[in-house]
Structure formats: structure tokens, C-alpha cells
Design a protein around this nucleic acid. Sequence first.
RNA 1: GGUCCCAUCGACUAAUGGUUAGGUCACCACCCUUUCAAGGUGGCGGUACGGGUUCGAAUCCCGUUGGGACUACCA
Length: 490
Amino acid sequence: MSVRVRFAPSPTGFLHIGGLRTALYNYLFARHHSGRFILRIEDTDQTRYVPGSVEDILASLRWAGIEPDESPVHGGNYGPYTQSERTDIYRHHARLLVERGTAYYAFDTPEELERMRQRQQAAGIAPHYDRSSMRNQYTLGEEETQRLLVAGSPATIRLKVPLHGEVKFDDIIRGTIVVPCKDVDDQILLKSDGFPTYHLANVVDDHLMGITHVIRGEEWLPSTPKHVLLYHAFGWESPLFAHLPLLLNPDRSKLSKRHGDVAVRDYIAKGYFPEALVNFIALLGWNPDGDRELYMLDELIEAFSLERVNKAGAVFDIAKLDWMNAQYLKQFVVRDLPRLVAHIRPFLEERGWNVSDDYIARVIVLVHERIHRLPELIDFAPYMFSPPEYDDDFFRSVWTDDAAQLIEECTQLIESLEPWDAETLHNRISTLAQAHGVPFRIIGTLLRLAVTGRRVGAGMMDTIALLGKDETVRRLRTFLRWTSERVAHA
RNA sequence: GGUCCCAUCGACUAAUGGUUAGGUCACCACCCUUUCAAGGUGGCGGUACGGGUUCGAAUCCCGUUGGGACUACCA
């Protein structure tokens, strides 16, 4: 049987980084086995729906290179792929269960349920639906049940969980899991608003859509016994389960906002490469061997297997993501400079800097080893796009008595430099430094301060060579004028 | 509280009964060097604890401790 897997997010906001990893593992598994990857939208809770979510999920997946084979927009033979368009199917199946005697009607109000829970807590027992004392099909009797239904009383349908015995299932990642039935609650399957709960919709859809492997986050592990019971109740064969370890905050709680960005779109906005983010999260909880770190998407597909997924949660460590992004940055500088130029151009234009592709490319080559993400280039080397600004602290910390003389001579040297390249510049300045008995680094630093207004940056000779003779000389003269004013006032 | 899951350096992980417990990030030092990086070399640092099983345990079993998830007419 060919593999069919699904990623089934709720449209309650932007796609989460944890969701992206779940989608990725499903996608890798599907592609590795030449199977199908399905996107299903689980919007059965109308109150939590956030407009634009579906678009963000699709856009984020596409950005990451994960394209569904079937989805609300890609179509497919098992649609519709949006649960709110399948309510009739769920109602039908819920009634089917009632007819089979494996589910029943319940008429309790939220207030009644709340009181029940409080009683149970006060008595020191675990909160659970008490089938024998609440208002349902069994306590009310068939006649009263029918009367209430006909009268239109709000009703839910609950799963009739056996009082004894145990539920057992195999998880590909965790092995056999056994839970006593008495610890499984009579889960609501159909809400009084006629919509299904996650549990019903999920099981019905996975069955109807021919899903072979349910690969999802570990947070679903505790409710899997309910799902297994549901498959039994329908008389269906259940798919194989694989519960993925959670992505964690640095404090080892479930990855969440508060500790940093969790939306994929945040990472897109910060200029991370999809290759880097995908590579990074693929290795959070899975590893094909011990040593290799860098994998492109097709290599991940080739190497992926659920058997090598870890059980323990993994902390999302931005520092390593940054390192990985820098690795890809270096790679792309060699392999695909135009892509980098196109990537950074909007960021530059936002600052009002319109320069040629060729110039941008040269700046990227110049500074790329000093940054992790392309947009960092703007904060790292704004002086490549606009003149530097100096302030008093800066002046005090750099100025020495012979600085003016040295810069004056450098300016003249630069004005007449032929040919115009970094190596020649380095040689001539080196000679000048020797003539003055001054270490090269003194002049290098002085030039850096004058030309860039900063203490750190890319190689100074390369920077000057790229800035050009006119611009460099202009900045040096400005600097000299500015410093002489400072000295006069001092 | 109850149920379930988990446990190798600070982080991500390798080692599926036999290794001086390996690699990557981070951190530290040194080299390189016009600054900062990048790169190179080296270093710091770990099998949570206690019992078993075994000639031999990070690995298998039990317990303890710790962490997490779940415990809704949310997913």
C-alpha cells in the first residue's frame, strides 16, 4: 500500500515553527516513500478561526519548499480538504456510532459539567465524565432521549468508552503504549453546535482520506487511545502512529512565544534562508548519522526515516540556526550571488538605498563572512551605502596628535593611486607606515574610523577599493575638516 | 492531583552489550591578521541517581529523582 500522510493544522494564526517541523517530517516521509503529502485544514472550532491563517500556512510551507500533493487549493480525490465543509460527513458518522451502540447522546449543560468536575475535585478523584450520574441517553432512557432530541434540546454525542480492559497501540517512535480504559474519558465527538470535535473529525478524515501514517506532535499522545477506540468503534483499521518529540524553549517547556519568535513568517522576515531553517529543524529530533550537519531538502528526503526519530524533546537553539544560516550564506555567495542580491535589495530600498546589482553583489562578497543573516549587512556596513557620521565620543577615542598628518598623506596617496585595487593600496600604505615608523594597523584603524565611522568592519583596503577613489577621498576630507574643528574648539 | 511520555557535555546529537563515550553549536586559548569575522589547531564539558542481569551496561530490567505533555462542547 502506498504511503499517504497529512499535515492537519488549525487556522488559528501564523504557522508555528513546530508546525513546520511536523509538516516537514510528514513531507520527508511521503517523498522518501514516493507517497502523497496532504494538507488538511482543521477548522472545526469556529470561535478560534483567524482570517488569513490558511494563506499564511500555505505561503510558509511553499517558502520552505514543502508543496502539498492534495489540499484545499491543490485539490485531490479525497476532498473537500477543509473540515468545515465536511460537517455532514461527521454528523453522519457520529449517528452511525450511536446506532452501533458505541456512542450516545448527552444533554448536560456546561454549567452542569463544571459542577461535576468541582464535585470530583473536592472528592479527590480525577475529573472525568460520569456516565452513570449525568443527563444522557442511558440515565434518561430512550423515550426521554428521543423527546429531548425532537424538542431540539442541545445535545452532544459522546464516545462510549468501555469501563474495563485496556487500549493498546504501537507507536513507531515510542513502541507499544498501553492505557487502562478507565483512564480514558467519554470524549465528546459531536458538539451541541453540530460541529465535530478534533477527535471525531480527525479519525473520520484520516480513514476516509486513506491516511496510512499519522505523524504528529507528542502532545497528541495522551488522546491517541481515544482515537484508537474510535477506529475500533467504527470497525476500521487504524493507521500507524508516530508521535514526534516536542520542540522546546530554552527552559524545556513546549516551544512558545515569550521566549522569541515562533512564527515561520518571523524567520522569513529576518532573512533566514529556507534551506537553513529546514535543515536546522530537520535535525531537531532526527539524525541520519552523527557527524554531518548540512543537508539540502533532497538529501533529507533520501536519508529520512521515522525509526531514527528521537524520543526526547529538543531545545530550539537560535545560535546554532544562525551558524547554519551563515554556512548557507557562504555557500550561496559562491553558487548563487544573484539570488542574494535579489534577497537583500528590498531591505536596502526600504532604507532608500538604490544601488546597482553589481555593487550590492560586491558588498555581499565583502562582508558576508561577518554576518549570519543577509539583512544584518545593513547594520553591519551601512557606510557602504551612505556616508558615516561621527560623534564626540568617537572623536575623543580616536584622535592622536599625528593623526591629521597621517590621514592627509593617505588622502594624497589615495588620490593618486594607480592602479586602483586593494593590493596596490595595501602596498603603498604599508610603505607610508614604514616611512613614519608607525605600525600598519595604526593607519588601518585611522582610515577605518575616518571612512566608515566604525571600529570594526571588513578588510579596510577592500572596503576602500569597493567604495571608490572619489567617495573615499571625499570622506577623508570631510573627516579632516571635522577633526580640525574639534581640535580648534578643544 | 491523575494518566502518559521522556532522560548522553550548557544546546543539538552519535555510539542499538565490548569506543580512551565521537561530532556540531556555544564558550575558552592559541595561530592567522589592518579591526571584526571567517578559517585552522587545541581545550573545557556528559551517560541524573540507586539497585539488578551480564565476563562486560550509556545501551537490557526494576526503583528513585527530575523534566515535559495531556487532563475543554480547543486543536
